[in-house]
Amino acid sequence: MLPFLFRRLLQFIPTFLISTLVLFFVVQAAPGDFLTQLSQNPRVTPEKLAQLKINYSLDQSEWVQYIRWLTNLLKGNLGISFAANQPVWDLVAPRLWNSLILVIISTVLTYAIGLLIGIYGALRPYSVPDRIISVLAYFGLGIPSFFFGLLVIYGLVVLKQNTGWDVPITGKSSGALQNAGFFRNGWDVFLHALAPSIVLALRSISSESRFIRGQMLEVMGQDYIRTARAKGLNDSIVTYKHAFRNASLPLVATLGSLLPFLIGGAGFVEVVFAWPGLTPLLLDSLGNQDLYVIVSTAALTSLLYIIGNILADILLAAVDPRIRYS
């Protein structure tokens, strides 16, 4: 097991270097740089501009910039944001946590609801409820999240007008509650996170339930399920002990991609609900070519990706006795 982990970590090094290098050059390939905007500003003198260029290393070649960024990264320094004029980590960290709130709630919803309706569908395939769920799932997969987000906002506004129930639809918290205590604030954040999390979960519930339904259906047709029934076991033991454990193996294998998704997954839903997550920041950074915010976040994501995959490998070995790393 340990040599295996070591090998995986070694494999990570080239992956990491190549992905960040490509990203670094792609971002730089766009015409201009962060200072292009400033150069149009009559109040910024050419001397000031030249000074900034040197400060931000933008006068150097891309290779030199990349090497400087990489050596800083190894020291734990993600670089600075040109736009915010503060270290990238200080800028990214709070937004990372905000995104995590959404993604964790929606992931819990995904697995709780997705597994339930997936198994339900597999136990009664082609029944009327299963067909209804199938149709809904195709809608869930087909509808773009940002558009569904707008529909939900509209629905919540109508709900508020008719019943007075106020489910917050923008932002992360109600400003008035600044000093209301931990639990009060926590509940407030949770309420704000509810709508975007559900929108976020819809898509993954749809795909996850389809996936687990297919897996369960396949496993339920296996010979060892017939053996289990021939032993006299009841349906729930056959389903949950014998079938589900096998059907969940591919699910465990895909858990590895969950970790990077925890960072980047919230996406446009954050923009629609004005949630102060990572995506709005990244979009702004891309717009004004805030180089180190982009590449450092990407570096974090690829790091999480490799960690996630290693964790998934370990987990898979724990649930599937046929898999041994030696």
Partner: peptide, 29 residues
Amino acid sequence: MRKIRGNDISMIFQEPMTSLNPVYTVGDQ
């Protein structure tokens, strides 16, 4: 029937390679 299956009437199948659950020990099963 569940009381009879495995107790009064047992069955063995054609395919020993696929008739046992791969994720549990034979002892468990």
